[in-house]
Design a protein around this nucleic acid. Sequence first.
DNA 1: GTCTATATACTGATAGAC
DNA 2: GTCTATCAGTATATAGAC
Lengths: 202, 202
Amino acid sequence: MTATAPRARGEYAKSAARRLQILTAAVEVFSASGFHRGSLRDVAERTGLSQAGVLHHFSSKSELVAAVLTWRDEQAEGRFHDALSGVQWIRALVDLVESNQRESPQLAEMYALLSSEATSPEHPVHEYFTQRYVWVVANAREALERAAQVGHLRPGVDPASAARTLIALMDGLQVQWLYDRGGVDMAADFHRYAQSLFTVDL
Amino acid sequence: MTATAPRARGEYAKSAARRLQILTAAVEVFSASGFHRGSLRDVAERTGLSQAGVLHHFSSKSELVAAVLTWRDEQAEGRFHDALSGVQWIRALVDLVESNQRESPQLAEMYALLSSEATSPEHPVHEYFTQRYVWVVANAREALERAAQVGHLRPGVDPASAARTLIALMDGLQVQWLYDRGGVDMAADFHRYAQSLFTVDL
DNA sequence: GTCTATATACTGATAGAC
DNA sequence: GTCTATCAGTATATAGAC
């Protein structure tokens, strides 16, 4: 990505388009096989390139998987805003689970696989997931605390514990869904638990 | 394992002891690296054998990982009995989470990693986990239904959904714990959710 | 920007000596 | 029961032609 010399606009666009093709193929590969088992050759074949061709755009496999996750985050961006009330933030989380299941199951699948794989400290995206869990759990806790301040949290609910539980539920339901895509309705179960935390309708 | 000729008792014991050594080493390797990235050479080194030596006792890597899971199940056996009441069954599940975290975190770690890895249908223990989720969710649901029959389930709790949620929580909390072993108390969060399902103390 | 060819490193599994 | 030696397969990454 780090351009070293000026180029015509057309060349950038062409390169960017190719990078998007590779990222799309990488999601397919990593979602099915994870990082270690998913191969660059497999990504290359789906893109219509050679393996060396892929490495022209992403200098290593590790850089590719990191780019995929960053790209995913950019796509999900804008769904959560600081201006939202606590209840609205949790509703946005429920909506995210629903839309993941319906519109981009493959992306969610990749996320589920990589988040377990990357628990190993040597994994190339270990740091990414470490920070991501800190961030998302903290945001969920703050949303629950805001809800508590306006009396919308059910009495006895501990915001910190409920925040960890909400995120854990997202991950755990995803795994069960991967084993039985017909028999598990992630979004419904997640919504049911989230609703149980509040005194108002989500 | 399949003995073809009679042997002295001592030889069996020696072989069985060696197999246990290998299984213990395999848990270490698979818990840290998963199935695909964990290598037989690594297992062999920890056992003090050569890679070929390991394959004398387990004819393939797939057979080894299957044996590890079976071995784990035998260890956990006896914790759940059909005679238990619904509430007692759920309490046994909470106790299992507590003892996993305290006594055998490595075993739990391996389970968490493999259960995600094996969502891929080609994975050698895919069938094992498919059947395991069916079994464990069904048992949890039946326990909740028994509790409902004696009026111990909180009104409005759906046994099927709560059963999926309980098991999902076990898996999801485990992942968060692997990223932050100091900041997450799996057992406490799990207990808190489980307690919220009942009108009596767990 | 993409290719072919290749260097280098591991992998699981087998053959056969001891 | 354990070893050494080896095979065949696959992987990432690089070098250099076009």
